[in-house]
Computed example of a mutant assay.
Amino acid sequence: MGGELTYLYAVVRPTASLDGADPREAGGVADAPPRIVRVGGIAAVVGSVPEADYSEAALRNHLEDLGWLEEVARAHHAVVEFLAARTTVLPLRLATVYRDDDSVRAVLREGERAFAGMLDRFAGHVEWGVKVYAEPVAASDAAAAEESAESDPGRAYLRRRRQQRNARGAARSAAVEAVARIRETAGELAVELVGHRPQQGQLAGSGAGENLANDSYLVPGDSSGAFHERVRRAAREMTGVRVEITGPWAPYSFVTLTGPDLPEGVRQS
């Protein structure tokens, strides 16, 4: 397989905000400069990638290569964010690949109504991520001193384990309450909310604690400051709770390419 395939990053409108902007500045997957394919009132931002690496069979093998996936994800995200800084964007999932540009044009023609509707829906909005962690508070100095004074090592061990369980339980309860507060108060400013599966292991980040909520909020851009303040206020002074806010992002979590208005063959990996 020595040919090339067309890699689809995103769908946009070919508006004045893109005039003069060169997506090649953002780099591109497989070091291929992105280009724009236009059909009517919408456009796709695409690039050429080697079939040897991006055929269905090759992609299945690459899914086991975290280094390769990270490199592709970084390049994909750079192109999407370049576009999002200039216009409303519908980001496609990683490794959405078509046979050629004509196949992409067919997708744009057949799905134009659905794409246009989503572009209208997301105009002026951004995605914010909110993760809530339960982080048990370490034993106090007084508790540590009490344990060191305990003459029976077995009883000291059991006391330490009981304190750890109590701390974990208290932190978890506080984090659950923080999640509810954030979804209620900050969620009032969002037009949509998507709850992702809480992350575990390396995906949960370098900090300690249990990830109890991994939510994405679609928020009007001019409400972002108020949204941040409500998130922080909801968890303020809650012991054993850590909150992370990430973004703003293009609406990755809210783009759905399914339904009768879209053609078959939209492959997202």
Results as ranks from 00 to 15, higher is better:
residue 104 V to T: 02
residue 132 V to A: 00
residue 129 G to T: 05
residue 124 G to N: 02
residue 115 F to R: 06
residue 163 Q to I: 06
residue 164 Q to Y: 13
residue 124 G to A: 00
residue 151 S to Y: 15
residue 116 A to F: 13
residue 108 L to Y: 06
residue 145 A to H: 10
residue 161 R to G: 08
residue 139 A to C: 04
residue 144 A to T: 07
residue 164 Q to D: 14
residue 127 E to F: 03
residue 143 A to W: 06
residue 109 R to I: 10
residue 144 A to I: 14
residue 102 D to Y: 02
residue 128 W to R: 09
residue 160 R to W: 15
residue 158 L to D: 15
residue 134 A to K: 00
residue 127 E to H: 00
residue 155 R to M: 10
residue 103 S to R: 02
residue 140 S to D: 01
residue 117 G to H: 14
residue 130 V to G: 01
residue 159 R to V: 06
residue 155 R to H: 07
residue 137 V to S: 03
residue 164 Q to M: 12
residue 159 R to E: 10
residue 163 Q to S: 08
residue 102 D to R: 04
residue 120 D to I: 11
residue 120 D to V: 11
residue 123 A to M: 06
residue 152 D to P: 13
residue 130 V to H: 11
residue 131 K to T: 09
residue 108 L to E: 05
residue 131 K to Y: 07
residue 106 A to N: 01
residue 159 R to T: 05
residue 128 W to N: 03
residue 105 R to Q: 00
residue 150 E to R: 04
residue 117 G to I: 14
residue 165 R to H: 04
residue 157 Y to I: 15
residue 148 S to G: 12
residue 117 G to D: 09
residue 115 F to S: 09
residue 111 G to T: 13
residue 118 M to I: 12
residue 125 H to G: 04
residue 139 A to P: 01
residue 122 F to D: 01
residue 141 D to E: 03
residue 151 S to A: 12
residue 154 G to Y: 11
residue 113 R to S: 12
residue 149 A to Y: 06
residue 150 E to S: 09
residue 133 Y to E: 00
residue 138 A to C: 08
residue 107 V to N: 02
residue 137 V to A: 03
residue 139 A to W: 04
residue 101 D to L: 13
residue 158 L to G: 02
residue 114 A to Q: 08
residue 127 E to C: 05
residue 120 D to G: 05
residue 117 G to E: 12
residue 113 R to W: 11
residue 134 A to V: 00
residue 147 E to C: 09
residue 154 G to W: 07
residue 147 E to L: 15
residue 114 A to K: 12
residue 152 D to H: 08
residue 124 G to P: 02
residue 131 K to E: 05
residue 159 R to Y: 13
residue 129 G to N: 08
residue 139 A to E: 05
